[in-house]
């Protein structure tokens, strides 16, 4: 039980840190266009030197 006296303040610090990271990520636009990055991975970027695109051509 003694450990709670420093674990709780520590967890509060962690939460504040997580909150700061979350706000930073949101303001940086990390939660926008969530599908785009997945599409990029799957579909290639459409440039001519992309192997998938070249094979189809």
């Amino acid at each position: 039980m003694e450990s709670l006296y420093w674990l709780i303040p520590l967890s509060v610090l962690f939460v504040l840190l997580m909150g700061a990271v979350l706000v930073w990520a949101a303001m940086d636009g990390q939660f926008e266009a969530l599908e785009q990055e997945g599409q990029r991975l799957l579909g290639g970027d459409g440039l001519p030197n992309d192997p998938d695109q070249r094979d189809q051509a």
Partner: peptide, 16 residues
């Protein structure tokens, strides 16, 4: 983005 940050922070704090 600010709106999203506000909502996100509120949820995080709410859970804790």
């Amino acid at each position: 983005r600010l709106e999203l940050a506000r909502v996100g922070l509120a949820w995080l704090a709410m859970m804790q």
